[in-house]
Simulated scan of single mutants.
Amino acid sequence: MPSLSHTRLRPFVLSLACAGLLSALPSLAAAAAPEPANKVELTKMTGRWYEVARTPNAMQKACEAATADWTRTGAGYSVVQTCRRGTPDGPKKEWKANATPVDPVKNAKFKLSFFGGVMNQEYWILDHGADDGWLIMGTPGGNYVWLLSKAPQLSAAVRSQAIARIRQLGYDTSKLEFPQQVR
Rank of each mutant, 00 (worst) to 15 (best):
172 D>G: 05
14 L>M: 14
112 L>Y: 03
36 P>M: 01
127 D>I: 04
29 A>W: 10
30 A>G: 05
16 L>R: 01
160 S>Q: 14
27 S>T: 09
147 L>E: 07
35 E>K: 04
84 R>N: 11
35 E>G: 08
138 G>Y: 00
50 Y>M: 02
58 A>P: 01
57 N>Q: 10
135 L>C: 10
118 V>Q: 12
90 G>V: 01
174 S>N: 07
47 G>M: 09
52 V>Q: 14
94 E>T: 10
114 F>L: 12
91 P>K: 07
161 Q>P: 15
97 A>L: 05
182 V>P: 09
93 K>S: 12
68 A>Q: 10
5 S>Q: 09
156 A>L: 08
139 T>A: 02
114 F>Y: 11
138 G>E: 01
77 Y>P: 00
150 K>T: 11
4 L>Y: 15
4 L>V: 07
106 K>D: 07
157 A>K: 15
127 D>W: 07
19 A>F: 05
43 T>E: 14
102 V>T: 10
59 M>R: 15
151 A>L: 12
140 P>E: 01
147 L>M: 08
42 L>K: 11
35 E>Q: 10
19 A>W: 04
53 A>I: 03
6 H>Y: 11
40 V>T: 02
171 Y>S: 13
18 C>D: 07
172 D>K: 13
47 G>Y: 04
112 L>I: 04
84 R>P: 01
124 W>G: 06
72 R>Y: 06
134 W>R: 02
165 R>A: 08
132 D>F: 14
126 L>S: 06
76 G>H: 02
149 S>Y: 12
52 V>A: 05
131 D>C: 03
132 D>S: 13
62 A>H: 06
25 L>K: 15
51 E>Y: 06
156 A>Y: 02
87 T>Y: 05
149 S>G: 06
143 N>C: 09
178 F>N: 01
121 Q>P: 00
114 F>T: 02
1 M>Q: 13
145 V>P: 03
109 K>D: 05
108 A>W: 04
157 A>Y: 06
159 R>I: 01
37 A>M: 06
170 G>A: 02
138 G>F: 01
87 T>L: 04
10 R>G: 13
139 T>I: 03
132 D>Q: 11
92 K>W: 06
